[in-house]
Design a binder for these strands. Sequence first.
DNA 1: CGTGCTGTGGGTAACGTTTTCCAAATGTTT
DNA 2: AAACATTTGGAAAACGTTACCCACAGCACG
Lengths: 344, 344
Amino acid sequence: MQQHQAPARRVTIVDVARHAGVSTTAVSKVLRNAYGASPAMRSKVQQAIAELGYRPSAAARGLRGQTYTIGVMLPELRNLFFADILDGIDTQLGDSDYQVLLAAGCNGEKAEAKVIDAMIDRSMDGLILIAPVSAKNRLTEIARGVPTVVVGRHGSSPAYDSVTDDDITGAALVVDHLVGLGHRRIAHIEHHETDRVRLAEMPNAQRARGYRDAMIAHGLEAEIDIASTSYTQAGGYAGARQLLDRPQRPTAIFAGADVVALGALEAITEAGLTVPGDISLAGYDNSALAALGPISLTSVDQDGRQMGATAARLLIERIGRRDRRTAQVKLTPTLVVRRTTAAI
Amino acid sequence: MQQHQAPARRVTIVDVARHAGVSTTAVSKVLRNAYGASPAMRSKVQQAIAELGYRPSAAARGLRGQTYTIGVMLPELRNLFFADILDGIDTQLGDSDYQVLLAAGCNGEKAEAKVIDAMIDRSMDGLILIAPVSAKNRLTEIARGVPTVVVGRHGSSPAYDSVTDDDITGAALVVDHLVGLGHRRIAHIEHHETDRVRLAEMPNAQRARGYRDAMIAHGLEAEIDIASTSYTQAGGYAGARQLLDRPQRPTAIFAGADVVALGALEAITEAGLTVPGDISLAGYDNSALAALGPISLTSVDQDGRQMGATAARLLIERIGRRDRRTAQVKLTPTLVVRRTTAAI
DNA sequence: CGTGCTGTGGGTAACGTTTTCCAAATGTTT
DNA sequence: AAACATTTGGAAAACGTTACCCACAGCACG
């Protein structure tokens, strides 16, 4: 028994070939289930692989072709909704040969570019970009180089597949629900957006549009009232403060995201008002946050698992046939009613 | 202008060399800041790199040596505490050449092994394992092959560095605080553990031990009362139910983790009791959950950022000198008092 | 008995880096 | 001016796979 066994050179395909008494080509064929290997040889090689504990080097593979690695970029780790998407991806890819690796883009165009470049440098076989903030032509450029699926960004591209949730419908669900409860002065807190493309593609912009459309559909055009801040807790607090200061304060607030609702809740409580007694409050995302007993927020559920699974499926298909036409899958959200909304 | 520009072969080190009129060796030297390149050549090459937008292929690099990639395994994405650790790692590695890639181990020994193997296959330069559940000798084996830092697991190893938080002290902080408020019947909800090594190494076991020790130190040995469930919301609910059914129910509950406290809160509320009126409640981790206004849970803060930064620093050091003696860094937690604990 | 398949298996050249070397040029000391 | 060190730059061999060939055997067909 040695104290310091030599650094233990990794066992390679050559070792396996020698041990099984065949060529490396043969081993490679078995590894990839490629054509041209008899059952006899197949089992001989598989046995050698098992005996030696051989594992193919992804680096060497990457140099030649596939790495069996899929990169997932997500904007941040703190948003629990993204964990659902990841679950969906993992479920779908669970027993495939692909390994999923994650990196956070930190919601900045620069950090996002760095992360995506890093994934490309590592010759990943495919990319799933969750709610990317990069410019559209940048995304297209990326997708031309490597199979890509974009999640949570509306609008279609000839270069990448996309999976979105119908945010317009989601916003309408909230408005319909509140109107059904007798509310008319329903306000909205949105994430401020100026860029033209983003106005069309980003979920936050779609939610605001859905709110407006639904209000108009209910003949409440005159009651439309939007506080434009950001999708953060602080943004929710600020937005609610603005709305509460109106001469006639709203009887219901539709926050564009659950964290926003949380900030709003804080502002409302601070103002000495109660939810849903004085004001009804609804969020968006149905994050774990919303489900928490003491919060119990009415929210729009996006089924992240489904989105993730769909994205993974589309990606695998595209890796298989890169010239396939791109698909745009749009899922439909549902409303989860909890204790923050009530009849007026 | 072509419709379908050719798949655009990646620009390689050879292209750069040709464009700059030097050898590939020279380019490689510049790339790695290696010895043997004059300032003149350096700038010439750098210009060529910029002009061609060259990026080194990590796959090719991996085949020869470093990949400039660090793998982080974390048990799950839903625990916000891990996001803090990640932030720390990112901060520390921010402007280094290393890229961090994540994968979730899903809290299972098998899934964990798969993830770690995948990282090794991809010739990552170093691994940070957060709260791994694998057997200790497995960890040692891994660490012999690739520089490794283990976070959140007590006990030392000659093969890997480790970063932990002093869970015994953390538990004592809670008990001291509650005793200071006049509590005597202080119960604990722990994560059940039987394995001997784990009993010594896992944070949950340490917290239980710290609770016991602190109770004894306060002369409250007779009041020690532990519900043994799991570190989940459901576990917290079940544990609290057990404790509430005692002939003399506790006046304070110390939950081993914030999610556990959340489950406990549910059970307590359901039983028609109030927090902290009837029962004081404390958690552990000071997750974003605990800070939420409506919850406002007294909890032990572990400074995940600091842990992550330390782990990253140790890892870089070890990558530099693989034969350096291993270090065990133990950080000290602090107590964050909020609204769920009060004088009896 | 040629002729053409089909099924098996292997030889070998990439893939894009890094890392030894080694050679030439330049500078520094006797 | 000879001897020696230092700096500068390059040639070429790995690293572990895969993919494109080609060779050979066995077989069916006319």
